[in-house]
Design a protein around this nucleic acid. Structure first.
Length: 517
DNA sequence: TAGGTCACG
DNA sequence: ACGTACGTGACCTAG
């Protein structure tokens, strides 16, 4: 009998938690529906039944809608009548079976079956294992950090209220706007739908005009760290001292994973204070964390997909891609590239991957629109293959109605047919970006399966604990660290064959912060 | 519940 | 002449 499920990762997690086998599943109706239409948003069984079997659902769909009530815990109490629950369960199974038949055929018709069978389905078990494993947190260090933050938050709060000359809620953008732009008379830089903007870009422009600004910026940073990370994470540490995130595999439009309850894919790193958070994520006694990340995977994919000679050469020569881009764009030898030139070139490189406009580039790096336009012109003069790619991929998307990754993952783009300029422009940027971001996601998923399988095959105790888009973290006994570093690098680098080297770097430490730093 | 803000790749 | 970079999730306030 074939084992088919709806949201099989959830079932696998339960099985693994009970010490049972999670092997042998051949289909997942939710994941299949996601591959067919990754922007649909929800893949509840009821919704899929309505979507794919509207006629039949109208006849008998009510039974499924009642399933939740029937399947509530007390439905199985000795006193309850189990017949309705069993009937609803049978109906649930019947819909899964019907959807299995239809969705499997649709996957084959769109050549998505290989991605499904060799990537998405095997990945479900890897993710279930990671969720069960969890990530150990140093609770004491987290609490100490929280106390330190609170002390400072109180100090700053007093300063802010004193400078404002009245009590108000600093967390309220509305109240803060009134204080800054009415009471203190600072110039409003930008507005939102509902009033004054008080975002960090606005505050940066106001720096030096009033001493309250620096305090507000510091308050925001500390309040975010405390509420989202210290307190938020503290609430979800399990009885085992570990945090068990949920990896969503049917959410993003590009094929990436996401992480919820809690989100472990946005733990701070960019500021020195925030990066302290990563030292709270630790290895169990006697173990270490091995962290490995891809080097410039999206730009390497741009070079590969666009087939751009200049960019291919830059990667083949092992050059620093942002420095190399700066040298081309500013017309100087690489050794004459300044820090500022490299920073701007880096912004151009990111902008290209996102579907740039000169306006946004100008805003991002703080130059005039004209200057930004000149950078882009020189960029496209150098990287002619990239310009051609940008044109071709949008043209193809208009013709076909979708874009796809190297492994055939699709995103439909009805936006390109819109009469609304903004929506159509958005569709064009997505057409540029999705094949790149999505291929990177495909490759990482393949890497995760390879890493997990080889760890098992070679008898390592090591286990994957986290993925952050281009980064993997493994927890392993100290004695295995060197072997695991090598294994991670090899399996990540070997996950795809590109026309440029695909590089991954690995390092180990007692905490996430230590391993990265 | 929606909007603003901000954390990440 | 448009309005202005891709993909996420969590917390807070206001209505």
């Amino acid at each position: 009998m074939k084992k088919v499920s709806h949201e099989v990762k959830e079932l696998m997690r339960e099985l693994l938690s009970e010490g049972l086998s999670a092997e042998g599943f051949v289909f997942d109706t939710a994941v299949a529906a996601y591959l067919l239409a990754p922007t649909d948003g929800s893949y509840h069984l009821e919704r899929l039944a309505v979507q794919y079997f509207p006629q039949e659902f109208a006849q008998s769909g009510q039974e499924i809608l009642q399933a939740k009530a029937y399947l509530a815990p007390d439905a199985f109490s000795p006193l309850g009548d189990r017949a309705p629950a069993l009937g609803a369960f049978a109906s649930h199974c019947a819909w899964i079976e019907a959807l299995y038949g239809l969705l499997a055929k649709r996957l084959r018709d769109l050549s998505l079956n290989r991605l499904f069978e060799s990537v998405e389905l095997p990945l479900c078990q890897v993710l279930a294992e990671m969720e069960v494993a969890g990530f150990l947190v140093d609770r004491t260090a987290l609490e100490d950090f929280g106390l330190h933050l609170k002390t400072r938050i109180d100090e700053i709060q007093r300063e802010i209220l004193a400078l404002a000359g009245e009590e108000f809620n600093i967390n309220s953008t509305q109240q803060l706007g009134v204080i800054l732009f009415e009471k203190l008379g600072l110039p409003p830089v930008k507005r939102t739908k509902t009033g004054y903007s008080t975002s960090v870009e606005v505050l940066e422009k106001l720096q030096g005009k009033h001493p309250i600004i620096d305090y507000i910026m510091e308050y925001r940073q500390l309040a975010k760290l405390n509420s989202t990370y210290v307190e938020g994470l503290g609430k979800v540490i399990g009885p085992d001292g570990r945090i068990h995130t949920c990896f969503q595999n049917t959410v993003t439009a590009t094929g990436r994973l996401s992480s919820t309850e809690p989100n472990l894919q946005n733990i701070p790193v960019r500021t020195a204070l925030g990066a302290k958070m990563r030292y709270m994520f630790v290895a169990a006694p006697g173990n270490v964390l091995v962290d490995a990340d891809y080097s410039q995977i999206e730009l390497r994919l741009l070079a590969h997909i666009a087939g751009d000679e200049a960019m291919l050469e830059a990667f083949r020569s092992g050059a620093d891609i942002h420095t190399s881009t700066a040298a081309q764009v500013f017309g100087v030898p690489p050794e004459s590239v300044t820090g500022e030139m490299r920073r701007r070139a880096k912004a151009v490189n990111f902008g290209i991957v996102y579907g740039i406009s000169e306006f946004s580039l100008a805003q991002d790096i703080g130059v005039t629109r004209r200057e930004a336009g000149e950078y882009m012109e020189r960029y496209f003069d150098t990287f002619r293959g990239v310009r051609a790619y940008m044109y071709d991929v949008v043209k193809q998307a208009r013709r076909d109605g979708y874009v796809q990754t190297l492994m055939g993952r699709r995103r439909w783009l009805p936006e390109l047919q819109s009469s609304n300029f903004n929506l159509r422009s958005f569709g064009e940027r997505v057409a540029l970006n999705m094949p790149i971001q999505g291929t990177a996601a495909d490759i990482m998923k393949v890497a995760m399966i390879r890493v997990r399988d080889r760890l098992l095959r070679e008898g390592h105790t090591a286990r994957l604990v986290l993925q952050v888009h281009d980064e993997l973290i493994v927890e392993c006994p100290e004695a295995e660290a060197e072997g695991v570093k090598r294994l991670l690098r090899e399996e990540m680098e070997g996950a795809a064959q590109l026309s440029v080297p695909l590089l991954a770097e690995a390092s180990a430490g007692k905490s996430w912060g230590e391993a990265k730093g």
